[in-house]
Amino acid sequence: MSLIVDLASWALILAGSFFIMAGAIGMLRLPDVYTRMHSASVIDTMGAGFLFAGLMLQAGFSQVTLKLLFILLLFFFTGPVITHALAQAAMIAKIKPELDEDRRDRPLDANGAAAGEGRQS
């Protein structure tokens, strides 16, 4: 039984390490800030998620698991905030993304006409 848990946890830890490596390689290979952000968010979510899941299995049901879960939640809540702040700051600084296709001018559908209305605040 404990062998199975051990195997599963090591598999998860190795999967996490793999995604971290992939994210790091991506950060070096990709052409501009925006695409590198995608790669960094792979590290933040997939890498940290799998790694901590493996560590939680190692820790068993205890306070340590709770702390791991809390760090993971911290990552999952602050990750997008940082990424969004970074992307928006880069956009405002007028750094042009390398684009294959720009679909910002596409017509919005029926809901789009009502954009900005019907919103309570």
Partner: peptide, 24 residues
């Protein structure tokens, strides 16, 4: 999504197609 990004990053030809769009 993470798996598909990882595949795209690790592919030798770097098969990415960055796109900007708007959603409601």
């Amino acid at each position: 999504a993470g798996w598909s990004v990882t595949k795209a990053v690790l592919r030798p030809t770097l098969a990415i197609s960055p796109t900007l769009t708007r959603v409601v």
